[in-house]
Nucleic acid binder design. Sequence first.
DNA 1: GGCTGCCTGTAACTAGGCGTACACTACTCT
DNA 2: AGAGTAGTGTACGCCTAGTTACAGGCAGCC
Lengths: 283, 283
Amino acid sequence: MSIQDLIAEISDRLTPTERRVAALVLEDPTLLAFGTVSDLANRAQTSRPSIVRFATKLGFDGYTDLQSWIREELSHQLSSPSHRIRQQDGAVATIRAAIENSIHETFAALDERRLNALATPIAKARNVWILSGETSMAGAVALHSGLSMIRPDVHLVQEHSTGRQLSSATKADTAVVFDFARYRRNSITSARALAKIGVKIVAITDGPLSPLASLTKTWCELKIPAVGPFDSSIPAVMTAELLVAQVVKQLGTEAHKRIDRLEELWQTTGTFLHYSPRVNRTL
Amino acid sequence: MSIQDLIAEISDRLTPTERRVAALVLEDPTLLAFGTVSDLANRAQTSRPSIVRFATKLGFDGYTDLQSWIREELSHQLSSPSHRIRQQDGAVATIRAAIENSIHETFAALDERRLNALATPIAKARNVWILSGETSMAGAVALHSGLSMIRPDVHLVQEHSTGRQLSSATKADTAVVFDFARYRRNSITSARALAKIGVKIVAITDGPLSPLASLTKTWCELKIPAVGPFDSSIPAVMTAELLVAQVVKQLGTEAHKRIDRLEELWQTTGTFLHYSPRVNRTL
DNA sequence: GGCTGCCTGTAACTAGGCGTACACTACTCT
DNA sequence: AGAGTAGTGTACGCCTAGTTACAGGCAGCC
């Protein structure tokens, strides 16, 4: 039952002023959700009691009642599908719901603009350093693999050799840091150290409260679903792949040239098996 | 500039109560849009002034200011669906469709029975060897990471040291091989060699025509979507995670004991950060 | 141990919210 | 033409909202 339906039901019994109010409300329902009686009265060029009467005519106790109803409707509309899906049962089914939901949210977090903001420092960096906690390692690997094919000087930083590897980082560099609660000490302290010497940080983490989020303006938030006893790395991997695609777009021909050279190299070294007659131009 | 960004910017200067408020707001932003100061105070188990202080810390004149700002943000989100569609209209939309479709198919391929068939040789193996091509490396890493936490003797085989690593494989072992067209020569030839000496093969590949499918009865087929110029590793990662969860189920208490020991080890070695920015002792 | 900060909750104030009673206008019906 | 009725705005009361000033409490520091 939407506000449109409610109004339609009583539209034939509306007085002229009430009709104006109805038109206003239909045009922008947020007016009802956020506005006060006075606001609406001003907008509809009428007095406050008319607004209240309009509410009672719709079947509510008063404007307050109508407003709280509208707000609930909007809340449902705004909230993610997670709550709706959660009611399914069975082991695989719940995992599936969790994964599909997290993918939904990841796409929501990574619109074109945000993706661009994250990709730019990666495309422009002199060196790219990739740091990661345990559960997001797959994401780090995917990013490293993808970026390596389209630009030079991409380094996946391993925990046991952090210091040695990072000692040459400079202000012209960018570090991509993956980490989620529980934050791995090594990743966080390294990221802080890098930020301090002016390395640009791109953080893939689990929320604004993350220690990574305070280090940079270029970050994004991922919802991490559980698969069995462990956290999933799917959102991290997906983010990594989207980032790579975006960096390719930004680098343009430069990246494509590099891919072609790599392809040539693979041909001459016979890296791939020519097993299937299928010609797959993409990698 | 979203509410998440705003909170992220000042997250390290938040007091404990303010942190509770922040968490609440992040979990459900409609609370901010619709709720009163009292509502929030009750939910966060604090007093009204703390809510107001939170608002001012975010850079607003007071709660009213913050709320009207949030409402405008939400209005944009709600009242202009054309805007939302336009954002999805770029390259991201097609990528999204491809990924969601492939996830759908992956779940279809991996019903409970098939998952069990794949997991059994992994749970029972003396050693587990993991081999992978380039694009599925993230899946291999995820599998390695997950399996390592629940059972011993799991090895991720790197291309440059294949021979040395695999020389100790026996009939009691299992090899999990990820590879998709174009098949990487190294992975395929290694898999063939292992199969010849009686190592059980679990193949994650792209169809019955794959050279891997002919080596074993325990295999599964994944559809691989493209993200930009490259193939996605998301289906591989997802399969790896589902496999890990299934192996955990099969191993039962044995796996759980192992996880507990690992947890204990993490505690004593301080691997993880107990993040609460207000208390800056050990950093 | 006392002092000095910083957090946090209590209390009081102002303002604006909604709802209702009442009065005015205009139209209709007898 | 007068009375009644429906529609609308004015005036008032009560209440809760947000804000601010102030006091208690706890930790760290000389």
